[in-house]
């Protein structure tokens, strides 16, 4: 009897609850949605609008000028270098990051003494603010007192009279920037891949072992295919973080030497904020959008494939 009453009253609550739940749900979502609409979606559209306008920092003009800013951007050789650099830095660093991330994840999966300390030390680069990390690297690549050069000499990779100016020549500054991006993102990718590794049932690997599959066979035919979605996620985030980052380049080289290491973000800052040409800066930054869109769509497809939404 009591049971029936409970079920009845439960139904009543559910029925009355749906309309009030809907109202409450909307109400609870409102602050987050408002924030995002006003300060992310709005400014994003505004950025696109600025890129086809003639806005500057000082004046309040906002006239439509068509694609003039994009044409002007493309005419600048610094911009074209920045565009190429953004892709080079991202692609090269992410290829190295995938390799390092997989190696490190496989290593961290094993048991060995001091593993938790190693894990903490390896995570330091990811957790450190980018600007503070970059200033550390700038000192390591110093023109006179580079500790990197000292170590390379100590192990005889460099001769006693060699003294590469890491941040002084374009051909060295580019690998220097990439080394910082790799350093910053490989810990993240390793931890993400490790999370994927631990979710693979050990029986699958044991079964393959029993059937005589060696380490590399298991790696290429079982582990990597099973890890593909998670590796994709790691690469996507790494790509977005590297592609859009400004701190590393700004602190390390400030775009130099001879504007050879600018990326889209640092050039947009230089043009839009330092020089005050908001419209031109926005146009430079908007060149990042296609890649971000591809990343977002890929992420969406992974999320929906896995959960069937």
């Amino acid at each position: 009897m009591a049971k029936i009453a409970t079920a009845e009253s439960y139904k009543v609550i559910r029925r009355g609850g749906i309309t009030s739940d809907r109202w409450l749900g909307t109400f609870m979502l409102a602050p987050a949605i408002l924030y995002i609409v006003l300060l992310v979606a709005g400014p994003l559209l505004f950025a696109i609008y600025l890129s086809v306008s003639n806005a500057t920092t000082g004046e309040y003009t906002l006239e439509y000028v068509g694609l003039a800013n994009f044409v002007r951007a493309l005419q600048s050789s610094i911009f074209r270098t920045a565009l190429a650099n953004t892709f080079i830095f991202t692609i090269v660093s992410q290829i190295i990051v995938i390799i390092f991330g997989n190696m490190l994840a496989l290593a961290l999966q094993e048991r060995f003494r001091g593993r938790s300390i190693v894990r903490f030390l390896i995570l330091l680069p990811w957790a450190t603010p980018v600007s503070l990390a970059a200033i550390g690297w700038k000192w390591m690549y110093d023109s006179l007192y580079s500790v990197v050069n000292w170590m390379l000499k100590a192990v005889h990779i460099l001769g006693p009279t060699d003294f590469p100016q890491w941040l002084g020549f374009p051909s060295l500054a580019i690998p220097a920037v990439i080394s910082v991006h790799v350093w910053r993102t490989f810990p993240f990718s390793a931890v993400v891949i490790l999370a994927g590794l631990t979710s693979i049932p050990q029986e699958t690997l044991d079964a393959a072992s029993v059937d005589g599959a060696g380490f590399f066979h298991r790696l290429f035919y079982i582990l990597l295919p099973m890890l593909l979605p998670i590796i994709t996620v790691a690469v996507l985030f790494g790509t977005v973080f590297t592609f859009t980052d400004m701190g590393a380049v700004y602190i390390l080289t400030a775009g130099g030497p001879f504007n050879s290491t600018h990326v889209l973000s640092s050039w947009a800052f230089q043009v839009g904020i330092v020089a005050g040409d908001l419209a031109q800066g926005a146009a430079v930054a908007v060149f990042m959008l296609p890649v971000l869109l591809v990343a977002a769509i890929t992420m969406l497809r992974i999320a929906s494939r896995e959960t069937g939404v």
Binding site: L29, A32, I33, I36, L39, V40, A41, G42, P43, L44, F46, A47, L50, A55, T57, V240, T244, D245, M246, L264, S265, A268, F269, G272, I273, L278, G281, A282, A285, V286, M288, L289, L292, A295, A296, M299, L300, A303, S304, T307, V309
Partner: peptide, 25 residues
Amino acid sequence: RRLGIAIFLTYLVPPTLLFIPLSRV
């Protein structure tokens, strides 16, 4: 869930794309 994913995706819009319009704001 769709709305959740949409909100999450806005995390991918980087400060380096928004700092110019936001400087005006």
